[in-house]
Nucleic acid binder design. Sequence first.
DNA 1: GTAACTGCAAATCCTTTGCTATGGA
DNA 2: TCCATAGCAAAGGATTTGCAGTTAC
Lengths: 123, 123
Amino acid sequence: MRFSKQRDLILNIVQDTRTHPTADYVYEKARTQLPNVSLGTVYRNLGQLVDNKLLKSINIDGTIHYDAFLDDHQHFQCKTCNRVFDIDINTKDFVSQVESKTNHIIDRCQIHLVGICKDCQNN
Amino acid sequence: MRFSKQRDLILNIVQDTRTHPTADYVYEKARTQLPNVSLGTVYRNLGQLVDNKLLKSINIDGTIHYDAFLDDHQHFQCKTCNRVFDIDINTKDFVSQVESKTNHIIDRCQIHLVGICKDCQNN
DNA sequence: GTAACTGCAAATCCTTTGCTATGGA
DNA sequence: TCCATAGCAAAGGATTTGCAGTTAC
């Protein structure tokens, strides 16, 4: 991967955004600093950054969101405020349980929890 | 919901297809029996059937798949043959563990496992 | 110099919607 | 009769792609 200021900016934006931004969000943010950047470039670079394991992508309601937090973790989405929270919970036991029960080899475990967040319960 | 032969056929197709069909798959299958059925009708009916809890929908790589197996269960996708297997595993303990750790209320838990299935390991 | 990258626009894929006509209760 | 539903076609949103020009190495 060759350096480009566009890719550098895009990576920084995702790293600075804790709310799991979409390509479109990144595009709007990038435009404030690099007005001529194109949406195609944003998509291409996000894809490359995922391929090179500098970012992760998650699918929320059919739209791809990006995440710079690379440690193994899961997501909780609040159906009231729509925010997506990181859930730091160990899935190893769960995964090995499924592996021995099914005889499939599992190398990725994505858990998507939906409910009402702590904050929204109080409002 | 009023009866229609289109909806009846669409529901039957999903119930008879264990491989988590997409709208397009259902459409092609439906056309063999009802050549004039339209893709819009298929989408509308699948949506209604989900709303009325006669079907479930799952998102796999950004595309919606339908599932007539309504009991609580999870999915395993083989990255070699791309088939999606049902995984019958209890998530209650896992969910309550997350609830007490985070104080969020969880009412849906979707787990998507990816790996190599039993069959593909032998080939 | 050259291959990777850009911006732009058009294309593509999946899904939804507006419309008028039809058909089930 | 009346309203849900159908078929058709056009619109929609998200993402990808083709191309000609530009830039990092």
